Lab assay of single mutants.
Amino acid sequence: RHRTTFSPVQLEQLESAFGRNQYPDIWARESLARDTGLSEARIQVWFQNRRAKQRK
């Protein structure tokens, strides 16, 4: 699998969602996937990585 590159618009949507809830449930992730055009799995990994980045 190649590395996913996120567009500025996608990142804005993801960061906005992260600001509201750092642990989105499956319904929120699937909604974000539809809105961004990404797969739910990529959304899930993005949130995992974003939480790890915040802990540093």
Score class of each variant (00 low, 15 high):
residue 2 H to Y: 08
residue 12 E to Y: 03
residue 39 S to F: 01
residue 38 L to Q: 05
residue 13 Q to A: 11
residue 11 L to A: 07
residue 31 S to A: 09
residue 2 H to K: 14
residue 43 I to E: 01
residue 9 V to P: 08
residue 45 V to T: 12
residue 33 A to S: 10
residue 14 L to Q: 00
residue 14 L to A: 00
residue 53 K to T: 12
residue 6 F to W: 05
residue 2 H to D: 13
residue 54 Q to K: 06
residue 34 R to Q: 07
residue 42 R to C: 13
residue 18 F to V: 02
residue 10 Q to C: 04
residue 30 E to Y: 13
residue 54 Q to C: 10
residue 26 I to F: 08
residue 21 N to A: 05
residue 18 F to H: 00
residue 36 T to P: 01
residue 31 S to P: 00
residue 43 I to M: 01
residue 55 R to L: 14
residue 31 S to L: 14
residue 32 L to C: 01
residue 8 P to G: 13
residue 48 Q to A: 15
residue 5 T to H: 12
residue 21 N to M: 05
residue 37 G to V: 01
residue 16 S to Q: 14
residue 53 K to S: 10
residue 23 Y to W: 14
residue 40 E to M: 10
residue 35 D to K: 15
residue 18 F to G: 01
residue 19 G to E: 11
residue 5 T to I: 11
residue 26 I to R: 13
residue 13 Q to I: 07
residue 40 E to F: 07
residue 24 P to V: 03
residue 21 N to Y: 06
residue 14 L to M: 03
residue 20 R to G: 06
residue 18 F to K: 01
residue 56 K to L: 08
residue 2 H to M: 09
residue 32 L to R: 00
residue 15 E to Y: 03
residue 50 R to H: 09
residue 19 G to H: 08
residue 52 A to L: 13
residue 54 Q to W: 09
residue 32 L to M: 07
residue 6 F to K: 05
residue 27 W to A: 15
residue 55 R to A: 10
residue 14 L to E: 01
residue 36 T to M: 11
residue 54 Q to G: 12
residue 7 S to E: 04
residue 16 S to I: 12
residue 35 D to P: 02
residue 40 E to Q: 07
residue 28 A to P: 05
residue 15 E to Q: 04
residue 4 T to G: 11
residue 50 R to C: 05
residue 24 P to M: 12
residue 15 E to M: 03
residue 47 F to M: 05
residue 33 A to P: 01
residue 22 Q to H: 11
residue 35 D to V: 11
residue 43 I to F: 02
residue 25 D to C: 02
residue 28 A to N: 03
residue 52 A to F: 04
residue 5 T to F: 07
residue 29 R to W: 03
residue 16 S to R: 14
residue 36 T to L: 13
residue 50 R to L: 01
residue 22 Q to E: 14
residue 8 P to A: 14
residue 46 W to T: 01
residue 49 N to T: 11
residue 35 D to A: 13
residue 41 A to Y: 08
residue 33 A to I: 03
residue 12 E to F: 05
residue 48 Q to C: 13
residue 22 Q to Y: 02
residue 33 A to Y: 01
residue 38 L to H: 03
residue 9 V to G: 13
residue 47 F to V: 02
residue 4 T to Q: 09
residue 26 I to N: 06
residue 1 R to N: 14
residue 34 R to N: 09
residue 30 E to P: 00
residue 44 Q to N: 14
residue 37 G to L: 03
residue 54 Q to S: 11
residue 46 W to E: 02
residue 45 V to S: 11
residue 33 A to E: 04
residue 44 Q to G: 12
residue 23 Y to M: 06
residue 53 K to C: 07
residue 2 H to T: 12
residue 43 I to R: 01
residue 20 R to E: 08
residue 19 G to Y: 06
residue 50 R to Y: 00
residue 14 L to P: 04
residue 50 R to T: 04
residue 47 F to D: 00
residue 44 Q to T: 06
residue 2 H to L: 08
residue 36 T to H: 01
residue 52 A to N: 04
residue 38 L to K: 02
residue 25 D to W: 02
residue 1 R to L: 06
residue 52 A to M: 12
residue 24 P to S: 10
residue 23 Y to I: 11
residue 54 Q to H: 07
residue 31 S to K: 15
residue 20 R to T: 09
residue 45 V to F: 05
residue 15 E to F: 00
residue 8 P to D: 07
residue 38 L to M: 08
residue 18 F to T: 02
residue 7 S to M: 06
residue 50 R to D: 00
residue 18 F to P: 01
residue 43 I to C: 01
residue 42 R to H: 14
residue 23 Y to E: 12
residue 40 E to P: 06
residue 13 Q to S: 06
residue 5 T to A: 05
residue 9 V to D: 06
residue 14 L to W: 00
residue 14 L to C: 01
residue 26 I to H: 14
residue 37 G to N: 04
residue 32 L to Q: 00
residue 55 R to S: 13
residue 37 G to W: 01
residue 47 F to I: 03
residue 33 A to M: 05
residue 44 Q to F: 11
residue 48 Q to N: 07
residue 50 R to V: 01
residue 28 A to M: 13
residue 27 W to K: 15
residue 3 R to N: 07
residue 33 A to V: 06
residue 29 R to D: 02
residue 53 K to N: 05
residue 31 S to G: 06
residue 14 L to G: 00
residue 23 Y to A: 05
residue 45 V to G: 12
residue 35 D to Q: 08
residue 33 A to L: 01
residue 36 T to K: 01
residue 32 L to K: 00
residue 35 D to G: 13
residue 41 A to Q: 13
residue 7 S to A: 06
residue 22 Q to C: 09
residue 49 N to R: 11
residue 9 V to Q: 13
residue 7 S to G: 04
residue 20 R to S: 08
residue 4 T to C: 13
residue 50 R to N: 04
residue 50 R to I: 00
residue 1 R to E: 13
residue 44 Q to A: 13
residue 5 T to Y: 10
residue 48 Q to R: 12
residue 10 Q to A: 08
residue 33 A to H: 03
residue 4 T to F: 12
residue 28 A to H: 15
residue 40 E to Y: 05
residue 4 T to M: 13
residue 38 L to C: 10
residue 42 R to I: 08
residue 50 R to S: 03
residue 37 G to K: 11
residue 51 R to F: 07
